[in-house]
């Protein structure tokens, strides 16, 4: 287990996605306008393969549980590498 999170940053979210979800690509954005309470995340991971949207979101919620609890708002989009690839076209 990593050390307990006391504040949520783009770095801490990205790190958790890399560590716990095996993310190959993470785009974390602070959309709070300064208060650091509202984040938007795009996560690409092969672990999402074959999962429904709800299952993917639940995986992300679980992996980022301690951090989501600290912020006011949190929005996520999760992709498999193939889905992400297709979006970049």
């Amino acid at each position: 287990m990593s050390t307990p999170v006391t504040s949520v940053t783009i770095e801490s979210l990205t790190e958790a996605c890399n560590d716990r979800l095996g993310a190959t690509h993470v785009e974390a954005k602070d959309i709070s306008g300064g208060c650091g309470q509202n984040f938007e995340l795009k996560i690409v991971s092969p672990m999402f393969e074959g999962k429904t949207t709800l299952q993917k979101h639940r995986m992300v919620n679980e992996a980022l549980k301690d951090q989501i609890a600290l912020v006011h708002a949190f929005s996520q989009k999760s992709f498999t590498p193939a889905q992400w690839e297709a979006l970049q076209q």
Binding site: H57, I68, S75, K77
Partner: peptide, 24 residues
């Protein structure tokens, strides 16, 4: 087992929050 509001249920089953509703 969902950390955020809103939460949508259809026919007794949890569908998702705002992100999922938007993507669906």
């Amino acid at each position: 087992s969902w950390p955020t509001i809103p939460q949508v249920y259809v026919n007794g089953e949890f569908v998702g929050g705002c992100d999922i509703m938007l993507s669906m």
